[in-house]
Design a binder for these strands. Structure first.
Lengths: 228, 228
DNA sequence: TGGAGGGGTTTTCTTTTTGTAACCGCGAGA
DNA sequence: TCTCGCGGTTACAAAAAGAAAACCCCTCCA
């Protein structure tokens, strides 16, 4: 899941981005309103985290322009406690949720999870495909009851495929939602990660879940959704 | 679906063409305005993607000449964000849509889908012919509920026939829409692919869907019955 | 400060797909 | 019925896509 973080204070931005990446989110950072609008226009984010206090256009204005441009993306507003404003509380700026600073990081994560869930028509917290189970809340994966240790990127990729289980997912989609703007489309990084996932998820199991559709992308499904 | 991509920057062109081909579009590339006009004159494209910034004739001029020549083909303009122009926004250059660079690839795909759909009065995402189902979004094909594995070219050909189910499709049409300009009209490649499709789609089913009309082309229809 | 691990790159190897070509067989018209 | 030609079939070569392996670099932490 890919997030745009709009925060002008560099150290806060760095810290949050780091924490989010640790949670396997792909994060792009914008430090002002215009940059944020530009990024949001270019990429398809799953969530925007928007600090209200920004140089130039403030958070309210950014949110307004986003909505005016037809963007459906969920927006989480951040505001200082002493600057809470009726507009924020009423969420009538077009935002979907807000959080007061300073906040506990786990609290932020909880809000993010809730918004993301809402954004994809309430997908369950635990995704099951055959005997593969992904607990997206605990970020825990098990295959046939046995725990599978995945790195953050591996997890993010698997979760993205799992949420679209049974569909052929184009590599452009993967690049878009699992990696951030620094992804090099000519690298074979996706193949490399698919291979790492196969080793951890499919190796030693007779039913493989990760299938290649040459010229199209990858599918996560038992049997690949057709008899080969 | 056949697309003419007009883009002079080689790496951008290569990247876009690759991504589009991944989505089973047949893509021709032109690197300047005159080349584009020539190609568009010779071939029948379903869509033209036109960068405005071109050496020689620019995108506006190319579009104008295209329209002057009576071309109805949908045109999607690409423009740099900092070069947005009233002419672009007003779409009064004869273009049907525009997109600012750099853009998100999925966004491009969405625009392409929208334009292609607009041109053909709302094509559905799922095409059904008898017990053959093509889910064009998930890129899955099934016959009688059973998944059918098709390569990229096979899929493109079947989709083209399916969209024109019941019609006799001339091999010249097939060559134009499923292959690109490098197609050798003296080869029997189409026959080869029809055969491959028959093996995967019709074999083992009593009602055949792929029928030959000698001297005319092929039809995808149950029983091959159609109004003459 | 050094080593382990995660993320990313590069290179090489393997498999699949695409395209070519030669040959076969059937159907329509003579 | 015979023949010609269109299309079908099959085999194979070339090219592309993907898999695998090895390697690099950076960060974090003991």
């Amino acid at each position: 899941m890919r997030i745009l973080l709009v925060e002008d204070e560099p150290s806060a931005a760095r810290m949050m981005a780091k924490g989010l990446r640790e949670q396997a989110y792909a994060v792009d950072v914008a430090s002002d309103g215009d940059g944020a609008l530009y990024q949001a226009g270019v990429n398809d984010y799953d969530l925007v985290i928007l600090d209200i206090m920004l140089p130039g256009k403030d958070g309210f204005e950014v949110c307004r322009e986003l909505r005016a441009g037809g963007a459906q993306v969920p927006v989480l507003m951040l505001t200082a406690l002493d600057a809470i404003d009726d507009r924020v509380q009423g969420l009538d700026t077009g935002a979907d949720d807000y959080l007061t600073k300073p906040f506990d990081f786990r609290e932020l994560l909880a809000h993010i999870r809730a918004l993301l869930r809402r954004g994809q028509n309430l997908q369950p917290d635990v995704i099951k495909v055959e005997d593969l189970e992904m607990d997206t809340r605990a970020r825990q994966v098990r295959r046939g009851g046995r725990g599978v240790y995945l790195t953050a990127k591996e997890y993010a990729l698997l979760e993205y495929l799992a949420r679209r289980a049974g569909e052929v997912v184009a590599r452009s989609d993967i690049a878009e939602h699992v990696w951030d703007e620094s992804f090099d489309p000519f690298s074979n990084l996706i193949e490399v990660y698919i291979q790492r996932l196969r080793r951890k998820v499919d190796d030693g199991h007779s039913t493989k879940l990760l299938h290649t559709r040459r010229g199209a992308g990858y599918v996560l499904a038992p049997g690949g959704d057709f008899d080969v």
